[in-house]
């Protein structure tokens, strides 16, 4: 009869492992890293100021919308260099943004119209997370 407790040992191990078992990693739930293209957290890029100016080309005057955008590096998992992809516009390196701010320009804008651009973090030839920044021409 003393053997009976030993029979429960494997069962206890099973229950213990099951109880402590960590489930599989949910890939869909992994979206907290700003360098992940599926990032779904606080905005990485936010507009800190908007201004409208004029410029002339061939004697014709146009309106230009300037957005000053802040890159929230505090959301980064660690300090790192990075690039900003302006969705078709030239990439901007973090080395050219000592204060982690960049300018986004919209040319030939109309007053009262809102303009948006998608910005992404970019490293190693691949886009990471990003969001749109918008401003209204005045």
């Amino acid at each position: 009869m003393r053997t009976i407790p030993y029979l429960f040992f494997p069962l206890l191990v099973m229950v213990g492992i099951t109880g402590c078992a960590k489930d599989e990693l949910d890939v869909a739930g992994l979206n907290t890293n700003p360098f992940d293209a599926d990032y779904d957290g606080p905005a990485i890029f936010t507009v800190i100021s908007t201004s409208t100016s004029t410029y002339t080309v061939d004697g014709i005057e146009y309106q230009r919308l300037n957005l000053r955008v802040k890159v929230h590096t505090e959301y980064f998992p660690r300090a790192t260099t990075y690039l900003v992809d302006q969705d078709g516009a030239p990439l901007i390196a973090s080395s050219s943004m000592p204060d982690n701010e960049l300018s986004v320009q919209f040319l030939n804008v109309d007053q009262g119209t809102t303009y948006c651009r998608d910005l992404y973090l970019y490293n190693g030839g691949v886009r990471g997370g990003g969001n749109s920044v918008c401003g209204t021409a005045e």
């Binding site: 998992p77 190693g124 691949v126």
Partner: peptide, 19 residues
């Protein structure tokens, strides 16, 4: 995943390694 700053390796991690 939590410390990675390379979107390409994050993609590989999520598409291949973790599954």
């Amino acid at each position: 995943y939590d410390i990675n700053v390379d979107p390409g390796s994050i993609r590989t991690l999520k598409d291949q390694t973790i599954p």
